[in-house]
Every structure is written in C-alpha cells, then in structure tokens.
C-alpha cells in the first residue's frame, strides 16, 4: 500500500515537473526542471524495483542529457521568442487540440485493455518470463536476471540498442559539425565554458574521478550479480570524462580527445558484433557465445561472453556520449 502511495507521489511530481518545464519561459530553467523530472522518474523506477532502469535514468536523464541541453542552449539562444506572444487568430491551438483529443481517446482505450499491475496471469508473465526466472541463473550464470535477459537471451535486441546509440552519435556529428570532416566546429559561436579556473572545483573533481572510474568498472563487472551493466558503466565513465572536460577546459586540454571518443564509439559495436561473428565461426549461432572454445565450464564461458559484449556496450556508450558532448560544446579556446 505504502509502495503504491510513494509511486503515485513520484508520478504526480513528474507530472508537475513536466507541466512546469512546459510553462516556464527560460529554456535553461526548463532544462533544470527537466533534470528534476528525470530524478523523480528514477526514484519512481526504484520504488517499482526496476533498479537497472533507475540507474540509467538517473545518470543519462538527469545528468548527461541536462549537460547536452545546456550546451545546445549555449550555442543557440536561452529564450524562446515565440512563446508568450500569442497571435490573434492563430490556428495552431485548435489544430493541436483536434489532433490531441483523438490521440487521448485512443490511448485511454488502449490503457483500459492493459492487465492490472503485477497480474501474474497476464501475457508477459505466462510465456517466457517463468522460463527466464527458473532457468536464467543456471543457463547464464547471472544472478541479476536483467543482465541475463539483456545480454544473453535478448542479445540481438541489445546489439540493436547499441547500434541506435551509435547512429545517434554519428547523426549528431553529421548535423552539428560542418564540412571539416568530422571534428567539432572550432571558433564559431561562443563555445561552452563552465567551471574552468576554480581550484575548489578542480580539486574536488580530481578527487572524484578515479572513484567514478572504479565505480564504473564495478558496475560493469558486477552487473551479473547486482543492478548495473554495460550501459550504466558506460554512462558513468562518460559522465566522469565530461566532468573533467567541463572543469578543466575542453577537449583540446584532455589526453582523451574527440578522435579517441570516435574510436571508442566505433570499437564498442565492433566488439559486440565481433563476439557474435566469432561464435558464428566456432559453430554456434550468431551471439551464441557459449560456442566459444575456452577451457572453462559452459556456464563460465557464457559469463565471459556476457562480460565481453557488456564491455562492448560500455565502450560504445562512453565513446558516443563524449563524442556528442564534444560536438555540442565546441570549445573555442578552453581558457577564461
């Protein structure tokens, strides 16, 4: 009962944040409110026992997306000029209502057909879920069933996800950077410079970053047993690199350049697909990495294989996120 109430509270706060983000006129304020929305969303996932998703939502939604939005706004303009200047006789609002009301009716209709939350007799719980729950640990060696499903049973889907992320990075690079062959545009616009030059922020971030790396690795390797995995580890790693870029002044001052990020972004999917092809070569199906010829138990081989593709996910996610950040931030000189 108390769980349901807390979940409802977080949902309500999410709605409040969403409405506030729409109503506020300053885009930066909207971005901050959106960050709060993401935190409430993550908290909601925690209440619902979806810890892996909560992890990702907190790191991507609340932290990295906010940074991306701020960078994008810095490159453009912080105000929306057309909001608030309501034109007389504008036909947009009636048109929007005309479209939205049927959509709402359809959605409500669909929602009425959904099974009640936690109904054991509903379709998702009667087909493959019991099989995963009963066999998952034995077959894949993973205590965290999310990892078992994500990286083993549903390895194709995860490869698809990684490809989507990779495509997003490439698309961002294509849209934002000009003709100069992939490197972020230099010297145009103001560029984004945040905490450069403060000894306090510098010292604190330098103290934190090694532990962030350690935690990212822990999240990756321990994803078998506890919430976490490649996506979460990659996001934390990317967040630490972006933190260093924000504090110490950009890509040019970092040993980890944009080109390195691009290499990682490509290496991740390649590693994932490579493991798939390797298992194909050794007589299994694509991504059936139990077929890899390692001198270990079948379960242990699966664990190693899962770790391998999760590493691919982590490397790819890190590369793409840092790449998007570098593309959006577009440093002009990196000093203040």
């Amino acid at each position: 009962m108390i769980d349901v109430l807390v979940a409802l509270l977080f949902l309500l706060l999410m709605v409040v944040c969403a409405v506030a983000a729409l109503r506020v006129k300053d885009l930066l304020a909207a971005v901050i409110i959106f960050g709060a929305f993401s935190f409430f969303s993550a908290a909601f996932f925690v209440v619902q026992d979806a810890l892996d998703v909560a992890f990702t939502e907190a790191a991507v939604g609340a932290v990295i997306t906010t940074v991306f939005f701020v960078c994008a706004i810095r490159r453009t303009t912080p105000r929306v000029r057309w909001i608030g200047r309501r034109q007389r006789g504008s036909y947009y609002e009636p048109l929007a209502l005309l479209l939205l009301v049927p959509a709402l009716v359809v959605l409500l209709q669909a929602a009425a057909d959904l099974p009640p939350v936690g109904d054991g007799a509903s379709a998702p719980f009667t087909h493959v879920a019991p099989y995963y729950i009963e066999q998952g640990h034995e077959q894949t060696g993973a205590s965290n069933l999310v990892t078992a499903v994500l990286a083993d049973y549903r390895g194709y889907d995860t490869l698809g996800e990684l490809t989507v992320i990779f495509t997003a990075g490439v698309a961002c690079l294509l849209v934002v950077s000009g003709k100069d062959g992939g490197s972020p545009r230099q010297g145009q616009g103001k560029g984004v410079r945040f905490g450069v030059g403060s000894p306090v922020i510098d010292a604190a971030s330098r103290l934190l970053v090694p532990f962030m790396w350690l935690f990212a690795t822990y999240v990756l390797v321990h994803g078998h047993e506890s919430p976490g995995g490649g996506f979460q580890g990659g996001v934390i790693l990317a967040a630490s690199i972006i933190l260093l870029r924000l504090v110490r002044g950009g890509e040019r001052r970092s040993a980890f350049t944009s080109n390195h990020a691009l290499t990682l972004a490509c290496a991740g999917p390649l590693l994932y697909g490579g493991i798939g092809v390797a298992s194909l070569l050794f007589g299994g199906n694509f991504l059936d990495y139990g077929a890899l010829p390692l001198p270990l138990d079948p379960t242990e081989v699966r664990v190693i294989g899962t770790l391998g593709i999760e590493t691919g996910v982590m490397v790819g996610v890190t590369g793409v996120l840092v790449l998007i950040f570098d593309t959006l931030a577009s440093w002009d000189d990196g000093t203040v």
Binding site: S198, V200, I201, S205
Partner: peptide
C-alpha cells in the same frame, strides 16, 4: 565532498 563543491560552483 560533492555538495559543498556544487554550492561553491
């Protein structure tokens, strides 16, 4: 460690 730094920032 992080919150005072954030306040300072």
């Amino acid at each position: 460690l992080a919150n005072p730094t954030a306040t300072h920032a």
